[in-house]
Protein backbone atom coordinates (compact mmCIF):
# COMPACT_ATOMS: atom_id res chain seq x y z
CA UNK A 1 0.00 0.00 0.00
CA UNK A 2 2.86 2.34 0.76
CA UNK A 3 4.06 1.76 -2.74
CA UNK A 4 0.68 2.76 -4.13
CA UNK A 5 0.86 5.95 -2.12
CA UNK A 6 4.27 6.68 -3.49
CA UNK A 7 2.97 6.00 -6.95
CA UNK A 8 0.38 8.73 -6.45
CA UNK A 9 3.02 11.33 -5.63
CA UNK A 10 4.29 11.74 -9.17
CA UNK A 11 0.71 12.02 -10.36
CA UNK A 12 -0.06 14.85 -7.97
CA UNK A 13 3.16 16.65 -8.64
CA UNK A 14 2.74 16.02 -12.32
CA UNK A 15 -0.63 17.75 -12.25
CA UNK A 16 0.85 20.84 -10.68
CA UNK A 17 3.74 21.09 -13.06
CA UNK A 18 1.64 20.20 -16.08
CA UNK A 19 -0.56 23.17 -15.33
CA UNK A 20 2.38 25.51 -15.33
CA UNK A 21 4.54 24.12 -18.06
CA UNK A 22 1.77 23.77 -20.62
CA UNK A 23 0.20 27.14 -19.99
CA UNK A 24 2.81 29.82 -19.61
CA UNK A 25 1.16 33.20 -20.18
CA UNK A 26 3.74 35.55 -21.63
CA UNK A 27 3.88 38.71 -23.68
CA UNK A 28 4.64 38.76 -27.37
CA UNK A 29 8.36 39.32 -27.56
CA UNK A 30 9.13 42.33 -29.72
CA UNK A 31 12.77 43.24 -30.13
CA UNK A 32 13.75 46.89 -29.94
CA UNK A 33 14.40 47.48 -33.63
CA UNK A 34 12.66 49.91 -36.00
CA UNK A 35 10.83 47.02 -37.62
CA UNK A 36 9.74 45.58 -34.28
CA UNK A 37 8.57 48.96 -33.01
CA UNK A 38 6.63 49.52 -36.22
CA UNK A 39 4.98 46.12 -35.91
CA UNK A 40 4.16 46.70 -32.24
CA UNK A 41 2.51 50.04 -32.99
CA UNK A 42 0.59 48.68 -35.94
CA UNK A 43 -0.65 45.80 -33.79
CA UNK A 44 -1.78 48.04 -30.92
CA UNK A 45 -3.91 50.09 -33.31
CA UNK A 46 -5.12 47.00 -35.15
CA UNK A 47 -6.37 45.32 -31.99
CA UNK A 48 -7.45 48.23 -29.80
CA UNK A 49 -8.28 51.33 -31.86
CA UNK A 50 -12.06 51.72 -32.00
CA UNK A 51 -12.79 53.73 -35.17
CA UNK A 52 -11.16 51.69 -37.94
CA UNK A 53 -14.48 50.43 -39.29
CA UNK A 54 -16.38 53.67 -38.67
CA UNK A 55 -13.79 55.70 -40.58
CA UNK A 56 -13.43 53.10 -43.31
CA UNK A 57 -9.70 52.70 -42.79
CA UNK A 58 -8.04 49.68 -44.38
CA UNK A 59 -5.41 49.13 -41.71
CA UNK A 60 -3.87 46.20 -43.58
CA UNK A 61 -3.20 48.50 -46.51
CA UNK A 62 -1.63 51.00 -44.15
CA UNK A 63 0.70 48.22 -43.00
CA UNK A 64 1.65 47.47 -46.59
CA UNK A 65 2.39 51.11 -47.35
CA UNK A 66 4.35 51.94 -44.23
CA UNK A 67 6.21 48.68 -43.69
CA UNK A 68 7.92 49.40 -47.01
CA UNK A 69 9.27 52.62 -45.50
CA UNK A 70 10.76 50.96 -42.42
CA UNK A 71 14.32 49.70 -42.38
CA UNK A 72 16.36 48.57 -39.41
CA UNK A 73 19.04 51.08 -40.36
CA UNK A 74 16.84 54.16 -40.03
CA UNK A 75 17.53 56.43 -37.06
CA UNK A 76 14.98 57.14 -34.33
CA UNK A 77 14.02 60.50 -35.79
CA UNK A 78 13.16 59.00 -39.17
CA UNK A 79 11.34 56.15 -37.44
CA UNK A 80 9.32 58.59 -35.35
CA UNK A 81 8.34 60.61 -38.40
CA UNK A 82 7.30 57.52 -40.31
CA UNK A 83 5.24 56.18 -37.42
CA UNK A 84 3.69 59.62 -36.96
CA UNK A 85 2.66 59.69 -40.59
CA UNK A 86 1.15 56.25 -40.23
CA UNK A 87 -0.90 57.37 -37.22
CA UNK A 88 -2.07 60.50 -39.02
CA UNK A 89 -4.05 58.28 -41.39
CA UNK A 90 -6.42 57.75 -38.44
CA UNK A 91 -7.30 61.47 -38.44
CA UNK A 92 -7.91 61.41 -34.71
CA UNK A 93 -7.01 64.11 -32.21
CA UNK A 94 -6.85 61.48 -29.49
CA UNK A 95 -4.01 59.66 -31.24
CA UNK A 96 -0.53 60.68 -30.16
CA UNK A 97 2.90 59.16 -30.17
CA UNK A 98 5.19 60.43 -27.42
CA UNK A 99 8.96 60.30 -27.47
CA UNK A 100 11.50 62.31 -25.55
CA UNK A 101 12.08 64.55 -28.58
CA UNK A 102 8.59 65.04 -30.03
CA UNK A 103 4.87 64.40 -29.78
CA UNK A 104 3.11 63.22 -32.89
CA UNK A 105 -0.39 64.65 -33.20
CA UNK A 106 -3.28 65.23 -35.52
CA UNK A 107 -4.69 68.69 -34.90
CA UNK A 108 -6.38 69.38 -38.21
CA UNK A 109 -9.73 69.10 -36.45
CA UNK A 110 -9.23 72.72 -35.38
CA UNK A 111 -6.16 73.99 -37.23
CA UNK A 112 -7.96 73.82 -40.57
CA UNK A 113 -10.91 75.91 -39.36
CA UNK A 114 -11.61 79.45 -38.09
CA UNK A 115 -10.52 80.02 -34.51
CA UNK A 116 -13.75 81.73 -33.49
CA UNK A 117 -12.48 82.57 -30.03
CA UNK A 118 -10.21 85.43 -29.04
CA UNK A 119 -9.41 86.41 -25.47
CA UNK A 120 -8.98 90.03 -26.56
CA UNK A 121 -12.60 90.10 -27.66
CA UNK A 122 -13.78 88.17 -24.63
CA UNK A 123 -12.21 90.84 -22.40
CA UNK A 124 -14.78 93.32 -23.74
CA UNK A 125 -17.43 91.36 -21.89
CA UNK A 126 -15.53 89.94 -18.94
CA UNK A 127 -13.86 93.19 -18.05
CA UNK A 128 -11.31 92.96 -15.28
CA UNK A 129 -13.42 92.45 -12.20
CA UNK A 130 -14.96 89.12 -13.13
CA UNK A 131 -14.97 86.27 -10.64
CA UNK A 132 -13.04 83.02 -10.89
CA UNK A 133 -14.21 79.86 -9.14
CA UNK A 134 -11.63 77.11 -9.69
CA UNK A 135 -11.07 78.13 -13.27
CA UNK A 136 -14.70 79.05 -14.03
CA UNK A 137 -14.75 82.72 -15.04
CA UNK A 138 -18.10 84.44 -14.62
CA UNK A 139 -19.72 87.82 -14.63
CA UNK A 140 -23.00 89.56 -15.42
CA UNK A 141 -23.36 91.46 -18.64
CA UNK A 142 -24.77 94.36 -16.65
CA UNK A 143 -26.64 96.13 -19.40
CA UNK A 144 -28.80 93.14 -20.15
CA UNK A 145 -28.81 91.20 -16.91
CA UNK A 146 -27.49 88.19 -18.75
CA UNK A 147 -25.00 85.90 -17.02
CA UNK A 148 -21.76 84.92 -18.70
CA UNK A 149 -19.77 81.86 -17.58
CA UNK A 150 -16.60 80.73 -19.32
CA UNK A 151 -15.22 77.23 -18.83
CA UNK A 152 -11.88 76.98 -20.64
CA UNK A 153 -10.83 73.53 -19.52
CA UNK A 154 -12.10 70.31 -17.99
CA UNK A 155 -8.59 69.32 -16.96
CA UNK A 156 -8.56 71.33 -13.74
CA UNK A 157 -11.22 70.26 -11.33
CA UNK A 158 -14.07 72.30 -9.95
CA UNK A 159 -16.65 71.32 -7.41
CA UNK A 160 -20.43 71.43 -7.29
CA UNK A 161 -20.00 74.27 -4.82
CA UNK A 162 -17.93 76.25 -7.34
CA UNK A 163 -20.66 75.87 -9.94
CA UNK A 164 -23.43 76.63 -7.47
CA UNK A 165 -21.67 79.79 -6.32
CA UNK A 166 -21.38 81.01 -9.90
CA UNK A 167 -25.02 80.27 -10.61
CA UNK A 168 -26.11 81.87 -7.34
CA UNK A 169 -24.21 85.02 -8.27
CA UNK A 170 -26.24 85.15 -11.49
CA UNK A 171 -29.53 84.26 -9.77
CA UNK A 172 -31.29 87.41 -10.96
CA UNK A 173 -30.18 87.01 -14.57
CA UNK A 174 -32.77 86.19 -17.19
CA UNK A 175 -30.50 83.95 -19.18
CA UNK A 176 -27.00 82.50 -19.25
CA UNK A 177 -24.29 82.48 -21.89
CA UNK A 178 -22.23 79.38 -21.23
CA UNK A 179 -19.00 79.61 -23.19
CA UNK A 180 -16.85 76.49 -23.72
CA UNK A 181 -15.03 77.68 -26.81
CA UNK A 182 -11.42 76.49 -27.10
CA UNK A 183 -11.98 74.09 -24.22
CA UNK A 184 -10.17 71.08 -25.64
CA UNK A 185 -11.38 68.68 -22.99
CA UNK A 186 -10.00 66.99 -19.94
CA UNK A 187 -11.76 64.86 -17.37
CA UNK A 188 -15.19 63.52 -18.30
CA UNK A 189 -16.28 63.65 -14.68
CA UNK A 190 -15.86 67.43 -14.60
CA UNK A 191 -17.71 67.84 -17.89
CA UNK A 192 -20.58 65.79 -16.55
CA UNK A 193 -20.49 67.64 -13.23
CA UNK A 194 -21.08 70.97 -14.95
CA UNK A 195 -23.88 69.62 -17.16
CA UNK A 196 -25.62 68.13 -14.12
CA UNK A 197 -26.40 71.65 -12.86
CA UNK A 198 -28.76 72.21 -15.77
CA UNK A 199 -31.27 69.46 -15.11
CA UNK A 200 -33.55 68.47 -12.25
CA UNK A 201 -34.42 65.09 -13.68
CA UNK A 202 -32.41 62.19 -14.97
CA UNK A 203 -32.04 62.38 -18.74
CA UNK A 204 -30.63 59.90 -21.26
CA UNK A 205 -27.73 61.62 -22.99
CA UNK A 206 -26.07 58.85 -24.95
CA UNK A 207 -24.27 55.55 -24.92
CA UNK A 208 -20.83 54.12 -24.45
CA UNK A 209 -19.31 51.01 -26.00
CA UNK A 210 -16.09 49.13 -25.51
CA UNK A 211 -14.18 46.61 -27.53
CA UNK A 212 -14.81 43.02 -26.57
CA UNK A 213 -12.00 41.55 -28.61
CA UNK A 214 -9.25 42.22 -31.09
CA UNK A 215 -11.46 42.32 -34.19
CA UNK A 216 -12.22 45.70 -35.74
CA UNK A 217 -15.96 45.24 -35.17
CA UNK A 218 -15.83 43.51 -31.78
CA UNK A 219 -17.91 45.89 -29.71
CA UNK A 220 -20.20 45.57 -26.72
CA UNK A 221 -23.84 46.51 -26.88
CA UNK A 222 -24.22 50.28 -26.32
CA UNK A 223 -24.63 51.02 -22.63
CA UNK A 224 -27.01 53.87 -21.82
CA UNK A 225 -25.49 56.90 -20.13
CA UNK A 226 -27.75 59.20 -18.14
CA UNK A 227 -27.32 62.72 -16.84
CA UNK A 228 -28.37 62.92 -13.20
CA UNK A 229 -29.21 66.13 -11.35
CA UNK A 230 -26.37 67.47 -9.26
CA UNK A 231 -26.30 68.67 -5.71
CA UNK A 232 -26.64 72.39 -5.33
CA UNK A 233 -28.19 75.00 -7.59
CA UNK A 234 -29.80 74.08 -10.91
CA UNK A 235 -30.15 76.53 -13.79
CA UNK A 236 -33.37 75.99 -15.72
CA UNK A 237 -33.63 79.36 -17.44
CA UNK A 238 -32.55 79.78 -21.07
CA UNK A 239 -28.93 78.98 -21.88
CA UNK A 240 -26.95 79.71 -25.01
CA UNK A 241 -23.93 77.43 -25.26
CA UNK A 242 -21.06 78.80 -27.37
CA UNK A 243 -18.89 76.30 -29.23
CA UNK A 244 -16.06 76.29 -31.71
CA UNK A 245 -13.86 73.76 -33.46
CA UNK A 246 -11.55 73.48 -30.50
CA UNK A 247 -14.28 71.94 -28.35
CA UNK A 248 -12.87 68.45 -28.19
CA UNK A 249 -13.08 65.21 -26.25
CA UNK A 250 -14.73 65.78 -22.83
CA UNK A 251 -16.06 69.11 -24.10
CA UNK A 252 -17.53 67.39 -27.13
CA UNK A 253 -19.38 65.09 -24.72
CA UNK A 254 -20.44 68.08 -22.61
CA UNK A 255 -21.95 69.74 -25.68
CA UNK A 256 -23.78 66.51 -26.49
CA UNK A 257 -25.20 66.39 -22.95
CA UNK A 258 -26.28 70.02 -23.05
CA UNK A 259 -27.98 69.55 -26.41
CA UNK A 260 -30.37 67.12 -24.78
CA UNK A 261 -31.65 69.81 -22.42
CA UNK A 262 -34.77 71.78 -23.50
CA UNK A 263 -33.55 75.19 -22.32
CA UNK A 264 -30.23 75.04 -24.22
CA UNK A 265 -29.41 76.45 -27.65
CA UNK A 266 -25.95 75.85 -29.11
CA UNK A 267 -24.40 78.64 -31.11
CA UNK A 268 -21.12 78.97 -32.96
CA UNK A 269 -19.08 76.44 -34.91
CA UNK A 270 -19.14 72.65 -35.11
CA UNK A 271 -17.22 70.99 -32.29
CA UNK A 272 -13.95 69.22 -32.97
CA UNK A 273 -15.19 65.74 -32.02
CA UNK A 274 -13.01 63.23 -30.24
CA UNK A 275 -15.60 60.86 -28.84
CA UNK A 276 -13.33 57.90 -28.25
CA UNK A 277 -12.22 57.48 -24.65
CA UNK A 278 -8.45 57.22 -25.04
CA UNK A 279 -6.27 54.41 -23.73
CA UNK A 280 -2.48 54.33 -23.54
CA UNK A 281 0.08 51.76 -24.54
CA UNK A 282 3.76 51.64 -25.33
CA UNK A 283 6.37 50.43 -27.78
CA UNK A 284 9.44 48.31 -27.02
CA UNK A 285 11.66 51.39 -27.28
CA UNK A 286 9.68 53.19 -24.59
CA UNK A 287 7.64 55.53 -26.79
CA UNK A 288 4.05 55.92 -25.63
CA UNK A 289 1.01 55.84 -27.81
CA UNK A 290 -2.44 57.16 -27.00
CA UNK A 291 -5.45 56.13 -29.04
CA UNK A 292 -9.25 56.10 -29.01
CA UNK A 293 -10.45 52.89 -27.41
CA UNK A 294 -14.05 53.27 -26.35
CA UNK A 295 -16.60 55.20 -28.45
CA UNK A 296 -19.33 57.37 -26.95
CA UNK A 297 -22.56 57.88 -28.90
CA UNK A 298 -25.44 60.35 -28.79
CA UNK A 299 -28.98 59.27 -27.78
CA UNK A 300 -29.68 58.22 -31.39
CA UNK A 301 -26.64 55.93 -31.16
CA UNK A 302 -24.80 58.07 -33.69
CA UNK A 303 -21.05 58.56 -33.49
CA UNK A 304 -19.79 61.91 -32.17
CA UNK A 305 -16.21 61.37 -33.29
CA UNK A 306 -16.36 63.95 -36.08
CA UNK A 307 -18.03 66.69 -34.04
CA UNK A 308 -21.45 68.14 -33.23
CA UNK A 309 -23.15 70.85 -35.26
CA UNK A 310 -24.56 73.84 -33.35
CA UNK A 311 -28.20 74.85 -33.59
CA UNK A 312 -27.11 78.20 -35.01
CA UNK A 313 -23.93 78.47 -37.06
CA UNK A 314 -21.99 81.72 -36.63
CA UNK A 315 -18.40 82.81 -37.31
CA UNK A 316 -16.59 85.78 -35.86
CA UNK A 317 -15.76 88.08 -38.76
CA UNK A 318 -12.05 88.79 -38.91
CA UNK A 319 -10.54 91.40 -39.00
CA UNK A 320 -13.67 93.50 -38.42
CA UNK A 321 -14.18 92.06 -34.94
CA UNK A 322 -10.81 93.36 -33.76
CA UNK A 323 -11.68 96.86 -34.93
CA UNK A 324 -14.95 96.92 -33.01
CA UNK A 325 -13.74 94.65 -30.18
CA UNK A 326 -17.02 92.79 -30.43
CA UNK A 327 -17.43 89.02 -30.23
CA UNK A 328 -20.19 88.18 -32.70
CA UNK A 329 -21.05 84.93 -30.92
CA UNK A 330 -21.53 86.56 -27.53
CA UNK A 331 -23.53 89.38 -29.10
CA UNK A 332 -25.76 86.91 -30.89
CA UNK A 333 -26.23 84.86 -27.73
CA UNK A 334 -27.11 88.00 -25.80
CA UNK A 335 -29.74 89.01 -28.36
CA UNK A 336 -31.26 85.52 -28.43
CA UNK A 337 -31.56 85.43 -24.66
CA UNK A 338 -33.13 88.88 -24.61
CA UNK A 339 -35.73 87.76 -27.13
CA UNK A 340 -36.46 84.59 -25.24
CA UNK A 341 -36.85 86.37 -21.93
CA UNK A 342 -38.41 89.68 -22.88
CA UNK A 343 -41.79 88.60 -21.52
Amino acid sequence: MIMSIFRSIPLLFGLFFLVLLTSCIDEEDFQNSPTANFEALWKIVDEQYCFLDYKGIDWDSVHTVYSAKITDKMDRYALFDTLSNMLSTLKDGHVNLYSTHDMARYWSWYEDYPTNFYEDLQRTYLGTDYRIASGLKYTILRTDSIGYLYCGSFSDGFSDDNISEALYYMRNCRGLILDVRSNSGGVLTYATRLAEHFTVETLPVGYIQHKTGKGHSDFSEPYAVNLDPSKGIHWLRPVVLLTNRKCFSATNWFVNCMQQLPQVITVGDRTGGGSGLPFSSELPNGWYVRFSASPMLNPKKEQLELGIDPNVRIDIPIPEAFATKRDAMIDYADSVLLKLTKD
Binding site: V19, C50, I208, H210, S220, Y223, L277, S294
Partner: peptide, 25 residues
Protein backbone atom coordinates in the same frame (compact mmCIF):
# COMPACT_ATOMS: atom_id res chain seq x y z
CA UNK B 1 4.77 22.98 -0.51
CA UNK B 2 3.04 23.36 -3.86
CA UNK B 3 -0.37 24.95 -4.19
CA UNK B 4 -2.42 25.60 -7.30
CA UNK B 5 -5.89 27.09 -7.81
CA UNK B 6 -8.35 24.82 -9.55
CA UNK B 7 -11.69 26.55 -9.60
CA UNK B 8 -12.38 30.16 -8.80
CA UNK B 9 -14.18 33.35 -9.60
CA UNK B 10 -12.19 36.42 -10.55
CA UNK B 11 -12.89 40.02 -11.46
CA UNK B 12 -12.37 40.26 -15.21
CA UNK B 13 -12.95 43.50 -17.12
CA UNK B 14 -13.88 43.20 -20.74
CA UNK B 15 -11.14 43.48 -23.33
CA UNK B 16 -11.40 47.23 -23.95
CA UNK B 17 -13.64 48.36 -21.11
CA UNK B 18 -12.48 51.36 -19.13
CA UNK B 19 -12.76 51.61 -15.38
CA UNK B 20 -14.64 54.85 -16.04
CA UNK B 21 -17.35 52.88 -17.84
CA UNK B 22 -17.42 50.14 -15.20
CA UNK B 23 -17.42 52.20 -12.05
CA UNK B 24 -18.29 55.82 -12.90
CA UNK B 25 -21.02 55.03 -15.42
Amino acid sequence: QATAPFIGVHFAPHYGASYYEMFSL
